[in-house]
Design a protein around this nucleic acid. Structure first.
Lengths: 335, 335
DNA sequence: TTGTACGCGTTATCAC
DNA sequence: GTGATAACGCGTACAA
């Protein structure tokens, strides 16, 4: 493996000059530049980033921590990050925490030991104070999920507003008894639940605790179970709003099993506009987030911190959209 | 940021001794070891891997290149890799190529410049000779997808056999006209197609070119389109075998739209046993791969190469299983 | 058991 | 415009 020394020797210049050529320093004559580049070509020299990293104390690499890989929504977000990273000459790498705090901490270690220049957390299982402390010292950005008032830059949508919008749409289409399948442990889900309550309040509907299910996972199986519970109530709901498309798909499946058709007897609303919401029959109405833009913004915020650790924390909320499909067609379906 | 020198000074020993303690060298008295460790604790020293990497010319980090993040099947495979990596004290990072050869090459560069110790390719868009050449020089392993006879270690299932098994099951359940939705560009899909043909041959059924669709993507939309074409034939098939669950889900959706019920008039078989195969109504029969085991094995093979670049290339085939569901219930459903 | 000194490959500072 | 050379933080051969 040739080093910069080998190049210098073969080109009959000093290593300093080679380094200058490689780093586009203009203080090099065209003649020597060409000679050096020729030698580089000839012997197939590739700079060893390990040396460079040590010298510059930087890696031009950022790590994105996500709970799970099999997440349609995240995939789009990460594409946005990658796109922005290319512009800034940063490498993006991804690791999954599987919601294991210890595993997550082991990845965060990479900040201490200079393995990466910064990290984006798409959700976290760690206490927000711990993260805030870390963020004082290292570039850190939260994406899609974060605690209220946390002193870390963050980007996502206005989840309270999104929940409100979805439920309002259901109300406007004439639904009377709207249930929600949420998740207390996720900030985004808690916010959406608040929006749900605000929409009910505004419409003068009572809030029924039995219509709010708060302990379910983001799986279709959980959706089926929750739906079963809801429909077994003395007065079952005529609309169900779930915090994920997969849950909503499970709800639809359960309804079908019960001989009910989603969108007819019971409306169903999901979240994230993933493939599954289109794939299932009937297709599912959902809230669409600007995935790519969220990713781009997250990376941008991180680059800002890498550039200047003292730069102020910022929270950026991006606009969401409702996508109405068969399971909750909106106004036209008024009854 | 404290360095090893700071520790040495505070503990009143040499940097060599500190280094020994940190690297579990036994030639250190218990007394000094304890003193050093105490200082490490006290001043919060964390070894800078940049220095260590340069010195040892190694990073203890491997990169997994996958085509896309939003892939249920891959998610399981990667869990297997992570699990094995933890045992071997290796960090796993993931990047997506989005089937862009240039992007893929840019990631492979990381091998040249020592950013990672080795790489696992879960599929690749590059010519296999290029990969084989690279593999001579750096630890490289193919996972799930590889070219026949390539001189690189690889792990996956016997796709020909899997295709054969699926089609044989359809035949045994009484299906007469079996179509297949495949993809010429993927090695695994080509192999599965061969298995399909062998099963037909063995059963004395003719091979009808119009029943083999070879140009589709792995999306539910492609499945719908392909299904539409197949069912528009003068003599439509009574079974459809798709190389992915998502395609199969699209097929089911299209059949439902046409008023046909998957598993009744037309059987449907998918591949990979992903969530979507369970989620859709009716649920889809599929081929299940040992995801975790595949991932573990891939990482094991890579570690072997990292340990000794001269170690011989190996190809490991793991066993698959059929999962029979409503869309193709198997023998019991004989007509 | 411990310390000294060198080198890993690069960039940056200073002289010329 | 170019060259010596000192860092960056660490591991290790060698000496003591």
């Amino acid at each position: 493996m040739p080093t910069i020394k080998d190049v210098a020797r073969a080109a009959q210049v000093s290593v300093a000059t080679v380094s200058r050529v490689l780093n586009q320093d203009k203080n090099v004559s065209t003649q020597t530049r060409e000679k050096v580049l020729a030698v580089v070509q000839e012997i197939g020299y590739v700079p060893n980033v390990l040396g460079r990293n040590l010298r510059k104390n930087t890696t031009d690499r950022v790590l994105v921590l996500i709970p799970s890989l099999s997440n349609q929504f995240l995939s789009g977000v990460i594409r946005g990050m990658e796109s922005e990273a290319r512009k800034l000459h940063l490498q993006v790498m991804i690791s999954a925490t599987h919601n294991d705090p210890e595993l997550e901490r082991s990845y965060l270690e990479l900040l201490h030991n200079h393995s990466v220049d910064g990290m984006i957390l798409v959700g976290s299982t760690l206490p927000s104070e711990e993260l805030a402390t870390l963020s004082q010292q290292y570039p850190l950005v939260m994406c899609s999920e974060w605690e209220e008032g946390i002193r870390i830059s963050a980007v996502g949508i206005d989840n309270e507003r999104a929940g409100y919008d979805a439920v309002k749409t259901l109300l406007q289409s004439g639904r009377e008894r709207i249930a929600m399948i949420s998740n207390q442990e996720m900030y985004s889900a808690r916010q959406r639940t608040q929006g749900y309550r605000r929409a009910l309040l505004e419409a003068g509907k009572p809030f029924c605790p039995e219509y709010l299910i708060e302990r379910y996972e983001y799986t279709y199986r959980a959706g089926m179970l929750a739906c079963g519970k809801l429909m077994a109530l003395p007065e079952p709901p005529d609309a169900i709003f779930a915090v994920s498309d997969e849950i909503a798909a499970g709800v639809c499946k359960k309804l079908l099993q019960m001989g009910l058709y989603p969108g007819k007897e019971v409306a169903v609303f999901g979240f994230d506009n993933t493939t599954v919401s289109k794939i299932v029959t009937p297709s599912v109405s959902t809230v669409s987030q600007p995935k790519k833009k969220i990713g781009e913004t997250a990376l941008h915020l991180l680059a800002e911190k890498i550039e200047n650790q003292k730069s102020p924390e910022r929270t950026i909320l991006l606009a969401h959209e409702l996508v109405l499909r068969e399971s909750a067609p909106g106004k036209e379906k008024q009854r």
